[in-house]
Nucleic acid binder design. Structure first.
Lengths: 138, 138
DNA sequence: TTCACTTTGTTTGACATCAAACAATCGCGT
DNA sequence: ACGCGATTGTTTGATGTCAAACAAAGTGAA
């Protein structure tokens, strides 16, 4: 039964990919979730926490301890916005930008590794088909 | 950056599929994880807990509260094995088998829904490519 | 202006998960 | 027969996640 279900294969692939990602970026202390946060902040300096949570597809409340960790490690800064004293603008520190640079290189190698069983065209097609899955939920 | 990564697309697909699954089987109180357990027990009556955990790709310790819930709901039985007093043989009750039957029908509809944007051939190809991902981890 | 409603970040509670430690039991080698 | 190591199920602790509730701050309508 299970081997005929798309969700089963997607879940197994997800587990395998995240395990490989963790292994590839272990020396940098970067998980898939933290990497996504760094990438989004880097591309959108000054982003509010709520907006970052939406972009990263996690709950506002889940983001809080993650940002605390990144801030304690000196990778991200929360600057209270002058216009709206409720919200924080998020910025990468120099150390954060450097770590993101190193992590990006490691992620590229990881990506090549997990896709090594696929041709370039298959890889594109795979991402395309994944995006067309579960249309009701999008 | 993120939209070029396989892991990103797989994760989004995974979230969407599980959300749809939850919605489709909400009336039965069956999550993807519990469904997998029922399917595996049904196909392998008398299975030990450790073996079930391996088959379902979860930790032995994670299985304990899940089985407690299934047992409390009267869907699964733990029968202590006469040959090895450490282990429990797992069996579906009549109620468990009936629930699994209903759930299987709902899962078939769910599967058709999430795959509605794909042709049958694409669906097969998608599962095949997912299985060829992250070869280092298999 | 004032007051209800919304937004923002945070705290708390519930739950799934893994890893480590544990007692009970088993099995094997001597 | 005995004892050491492995196995089995469980408990405990840490982490990541969502949902609900909350205070502080902003917004808009009467």
């Amino acid at each position: 039964m299970l081997p005929g279900l798309l969700g089963y294969h997607v879940r197994l692939a997800q587990i395998a990919i995240f395990e490989d990602f963790e292994r590839a970026l272990e020396h940098l202390g970067v998980s898939p979730g933290l990497f996504a946060l760094l990438v989004i902040i880097d591309a959108n300096p000054g982003l509010k926490q709520t907006a970052l949570a939406q972009a990263a597809r996690i709950d506002r409340s889940t983001l809080v301890p993650a940002l605390n960790k990144l801030e304690q490690r000196g990778l991200v800064e929360r600057r209270s916005a002058p216009a709206d004293r409720r919200s924080n603008g998020l910025f990468l520190t120099t150390a954060g930008a450097e770590l993101l640079h190193d992590a990006t290189g490691a992620v590229r190698e990881h990506e090549a590794g997990i896709a090594s069983g696929l041709t370039g065209a298959e890889r594109e097609q795979l991402m395309d088909m994944l995006d067309r899955l579960a249309p009701r939920s999008r």
